[in-house]
Every structure is written in structure tokens, then in C-alpha cells.
Amino acid sequence: MAKLYFRYGAMNSGKSTALLQAAFNYEERGQHVLLAKPEIDTKGAGHISSRLGVERPVDFLIGRGDDVRALVAAHGARYIGAVACLLIDEAQFLSPEQVDDLLRLVVEDGIPVLAYGIRTDFRTRAFPGSARLMEVSHSLEELKTICRCGRKALFNARLVGGRFVFDGDQVAIDDLDHDQVTYESLCAQDYLLASGGRLS
């Protein structure tokens, strides 16, 4: 039976690497997969990029308001066999309605979906897509990474020009080339220390 999986973790927990490995595993067995990500994620343009240096082009980008089932039907039609799985990177950027499309894709079309993303933004607030995935996924799996102190990282702290910030838009994509916006995965203790006790 097909299921909707949400595999989440703080930044640098290996989500994109795990997604690319899952795609490789399916294809090694002769099965067809589709890779996608929300178009708002401009990092890597039309590719899924792992921090380990591995990357692969997506089959399609998901625009704001797009019907994900329709995109899967259109892009999956090029395969002779059925689509074995849909893999989505940066799933936190999906709308709640698009997450509902994923559940329908699983239940009504029988296509497993593996969605990878982060739970919360730099202010510790859930992304709408992640919140909906937590509500409707068949399976939740946390991918873990560590804080600078060695404890388990829970939160993604935003830095602008190397300084922590706790105000701003929910979405700001990493800009490593210009050292403007970067993120650091922190445990709860170090996040509270950096924020002066602030959680939102």
C-alpha cells in the first residue's frame, strides 16, 4: 500500500542526500521515479543539490498554486511503466493544499510520496507545508544532525552577514556566494542563548 512519508530534520541533517539515495535505490531496481521541488527554492535552480556535492535535475518544479497531481500525471506519462515514487525536496515550501494533493496521489493514485523538508523556520514556527505534512502523513521520520556543542540540533538559526537575526520574512534562501543569508542548526539551549531567550 502506498504511503505519504515526511522525513524532516534541521538543516544539514542529510535530507537532500537521503532523497537522492532513495531515487538511486528505486532506479537501480529498474523503477521510475519523479523528483520535484517547489520553485521558490532557487538554490540549485532546477536541481536537487546535496551539501556533499551530489546533485540531480528535478523532473519538474512546483509553482505556487500548482496542482501536484496534475504535474505528476503530465510528467509521469513519458514512462512506459508506472511511476514507482514521487520524491519532493524542500517540502516545507508547499502549500497545505499541495500537501493534500500528495495525500490524494498516495490514496487515490497509489503512488508513494517521500517528502523531505524542515519543520520550522528561523523563529521556531512551523512552515505551513510542514505543519500539514505532520498532520496527514502516514509516516514521520526525523533525520538528525548535531549542534556546534554536540547536542541534537532542533532549530535553524538565520544569520545575515554572519550575525544572528530573529526578525524577517519566513523564507530567505541561503546566499553563500555573497555571505548574506546563511543558517546554522542549533540545539534548543544554544538557540535560546543566541536569541536571548526568544522563541518567536
Rank of each mutant, 00 (worst) to 15 (best):
D177W: 06
S95Q: 14
G110T: 05
S195Q: 04
A84H: 09
L19N: 10
C149K: 12
N156F: 06
A18K: 12
R148D: 07
K3F: 06
Y26W: 13
R148S: 09
D190M: 11
G46R: 12
G110I: 09
Y79I: 12
R125Y: 00
E135I: 03
L52P: 04
D175V: 05
L35N: 10
H75R: 15
D179V: 03
F166C: 01
L199C: 08
V171F: 07
D179E: 13
I80S: 15
R104S: 13
E28C: 08
P38N: 09
R163W: 00
H47Y: 10
Q189H: 13
R158E: 07
E135W: 05
H178C: 13
D100F: 04
P96H: 09
D174N: 12
G117I: 08
H178I: 10
I111R: 04
L86I: 03
G81L: 08
L154Y: 13
H75W: 14
L94F: 10
R158L: 05
V33D: 01
A77D: 11
D167H: 14
G30C: 11
Q170P: 07
S49F: 01
T17W: 06
T145F: 08
Q92M: 03
G44Y: 06
A36R: 05
I173Q: 07
A23M: 13
I111F: 06
D174E: 15
V107L: 15
K15I: 03
L71Y: 05
R132E: 14
V106Q: 02
G9S: 13
S13C: 14
T124E: 05
S16W: 01
L20P: 06
L105D: 04
M134P: 00
L105I: 02
A157L: 14
D100H: 08
K37P: 01
S185F: 06
C85S: 15
A157M: 15
G65K: 09
L193Y: 11
G63M: 09
G196S: 09
D89K: 01
P38H: 10
F164D: 03
L176R: 01
T120A: 06
K15Q: 10
S16V: 10
A131Q: 13
D41N: 12
L20Y: 09
L159C: 10
L4V: 06
D174F: 06
N156K: 08
S50Q: 08
C149W: 07
G129D: 02
E55N: 15
R7E: 07
K152W: 12
Y8T: 05
L86H: 11
G65R: 13
A84L: 08
S200I: 02
K37Y: 02
Q189N: 05
K152M: 14
R123Y: 00
P57M: 02
P128L: 04
L186H: 02
V106M: 01
I173E: 05
P112T: 09
A172L: 10
M1E: 12
V136F: 12
S13Y: 07
S139C: 00
Y183S: 01
F127L: 07
E97L: 14
E141C: 00
R123M: 14
A84T: 01
C147H: 01
L61T: 01
D175E: 15
I111P: 04
G161T: 07
